[in-house]
């Protein structure tokens, strides 16, 4: 019980510190912007630990962070193998194929007004559907290994990318296209020099959305069948064995992989679209 009371006191203390920093003189500094969410997150973590220990919550309900950390460090080979299977083989390869396919389709749509008017509403419609539901079908067609997971990811990634790239290619003004015309530029010159660069903010928006979808697709597809390795496989079997520490360890890996994937794309975005008002510094 003492631990629970300590958790409450810690919470109040951390809140007080955060309120002081947030309303203090240095509230706009980089340090404050880093410190406040960090204090908040660490406090939550500490409270989690104390409350689980203090109230002796059974592990099948909620393992303490320290238990999860211990499981994480002792299972690195397993987690690494799962990561390679699900993220590198399933999610990443599907992501690359899906994005390339979307680019090809977007250029076809761009070249033909008929396709634009016909395919785009369909694409918009499909992009809003829970495409992960195709997983059982694709698992049946492509087998239990990573190929079927990559196929699910391709389907999931394709439509949001198509919609975003096409929207991006419409981004140029009539004046800019007229200007290209006054220089007697051909279609591919206009595409390469004007419209693709102008589309990049949209493309990266799509790439970021797709990065999250890719990992979700690869993990959920494993719930429908997989070899005995993979993050989704590990989660569903560990849940069955009530080994929740392993589930949490797998979730930590997924969270890190997801944020790094997203962060990596955001970094590339920053380099490629440095000129866009949202990315300009100073």
């Amino acid at each position: 019980m003492n631990l629970v009371i300590a958790a409450v006191i810690l919470w109040l203390a951390a809140m007080w510190v955060n309120i002081r920093i947030a309303n203090g003189p240095a509230d706009d500094s980089q340090g404050a912007k880093l410190a406040v969410p960090l204090i908040f997150g660490l406090t939550l973590l500490a409270m989690w630990e104390m409350i689980v220990r203090g109230m002796e919550v059974p592990m099948v309900i909620l393992p303490a962070p320290s238990v999860i950390a211990a499981r994480l460090t002792s299972s690195i080979p397993i987690l690494w193998a799962d990561f390679v299977q699900t993220f590198v083989k399933g999610a990443l390869s599907g992501y690359v194929i899906g994005v390339i396919a979307a680019f090809v389709a977007a250029i076809a749509v761009d070249r033909s007004d008929f396709l634009r008017r016909g395919l785009l509403p369909v694409g918009n419609f499909v992009a809003a559907l829970p495409i992960v539901g195709t997983a059982p079908i694709l698992v049946m067609w492509y087998g239990f290994d990573w190929q079927s997971k990559a196929a699910v990811v391709v389907v999931m990634v394709f439509f949001p990318m198509l919609v975003n790239i096409t929207a991006g290619l419409q981004e140029t003004s009539a004046m800019q296209r007229d200007q290209m015309k006054t220089w007697a530029a051909g279609y591919w010159q206009g595409l390469w020099k004007l419209r693709l660069p102008a589309a990049m903010p949209f493309v990266f928006n799509g790439l970021k959305i797709a990065s999250t979808l890719a990992l979700i697709g690869a993990i959920v597809a494993e719930f429908f069948g997989s070899p005995i390795v993979g993050m989704g496989f590990r989660i569903s079997t560990s849940v069955g064995q009530l080994a929740l520490d392993m589930v949490w360890a797998e979730i930590v890996v997924a969270a890190i992989a997801g944020s790094l994937f997203y962060g990596g794309i955001a970094v590339i975005e920053r380099i490629v679209t440095f000129w866009h008002p949202s990315q300009r510094r100073g």
Binding site: V60, I219, V247, A255, S259, F261, Y262
Partner: peptide
Amino acid sequence: TIPVLAIAPMIIVVFNS
């Protein structure tokens, strides 16, 4: 940015227990 869907099975089981 993280695949929160991955915790779905666990939530079901925890509530089940």
